[in-house]
């Protein structure tokens, strides 16, 4: 079996090398991918068509917004899947140990105070990243991960329970669902108003702006949805994995 695997790897590697012979030169401005009308269109027309200065955000959330919707769904699915597989019945005996844990939590002064200072700043920064996706690198995925990270920091530096007291697992999954709902809901509103699914320009009547600005607002809306899902699923996955699905103890 091992030799079979090695042979498969060698053949695949050889094929990849063989294919690379035909590649355009690295960073070549005349390569097909940068010459073809798709990328030309994105580079020249993005601001004109969506009023978003950050091209990447416009492609991600508008031109190929349907892809991103399902990328968000993939993350959501991962969270649901981990709960479906790992989540066992809550162990009642562990609750007794909580009293001693509380003592431990208070004893570590430096850790506690540092985190107390850090967590709100991290979360503020996360919100900034989400909101500023239009103009600079950032957006829902990045901001969501940062926000989720702040909750995980709470769980690591205190106890898992400390973080769960603020966002319980049930709430996390609910928020993740809300995130997907925000994204797809915006798409659905477009459909109900008579446009195609995810055609944000149709929202201009609702938002009282011109169709191109409506696209920009639509992008912000879906980024917020993505952030909800990513942040809460990050935390839900951590909580389940670190406590083997029991939601008690943790790392």
């Amino acid at each position: 079996m091992k030799t079979l695997g090695a042979i498969a790897v060698i053949i695949t590697g050889a094929l990849l090398l063989y294919a690379s012979e035909d590649f355009p030169a690295w960073g070549d401005p005349h390569s097909p991918a940068s010459q073809y009308r798709v990328s030309q269109h994105y580079i020249l027309k993005t601001f004109e068509e969506t009023s978003v200065p950050n091209m990447v955000t416009a492609i991600l959330a508008d031109y190929r917004g349907y892809d991103t919707l399902f990328e968000t769904v993939v993350i959501f699915t991962a969270g649901i899947a981990i709960i479906a597989i790992l989540r066992g019945p809550i162990d009642k005996r562990v609750r007794l140990r909580l009293a001693s844990e509380k003592k431990l939590r208070e004893s570590n002064l430096i850790l506690a105070q540092t985190c107390r200072l850090l967590v709100p700043i991290i979360q503020l920064f996360a919100l900034y990243v989400i909101a500023h996706g239009h103009h600079s690198p950032g957006g829902g995925f990045q901001g969501g991960v940062i926000f989720g990270g702040s909750l995980i920091l709470l769980a690591i530096s205190f106890q898992l329970q400390t973080a769960l007291d603020r966002v319980s697992e049930k709430k996390a999954i609910l928020l993740a669902g809300v995130g997907v709902l925000i994204y797809s809901g915006i798409g659905l509103v477009c459909l109900l108003l008579g446009g195609n699914f995810l055609d944000y320009s149709i929202l201009h009547n609702l938002l009282q702006v011109d169709p191109i600005t409506a696209r920009s607002h639509g992008i912000l809306g879906v980024e917020i949805g993505v952030a909800f899902t990513v942040a809460s699923i990050m935390f839900a996955i951590y909580a389940n994995l670190s406590s083997r699905g029991r939601m008690k103890g943790g790392l």
């Binding site: 009308r37 798709v38 269109h41 994105y42 508008d62 031109y63 190929r64 917004g65 349907y66 892809d67 446009g195 195609n196 699914f197 995810l198 055609d199 944000y200 320009s201 149709i202």
Partner: peptide, 13 residues
């Protein structure tokens, strides 16, 4: 053909 987001081929999906 159904254009998602109203973007025509090949710019959208």
């Amino acid at each position: 053909v159904y254009l998602l987001g109203g973007w025509s081929r090949p710019f959208g999906i």
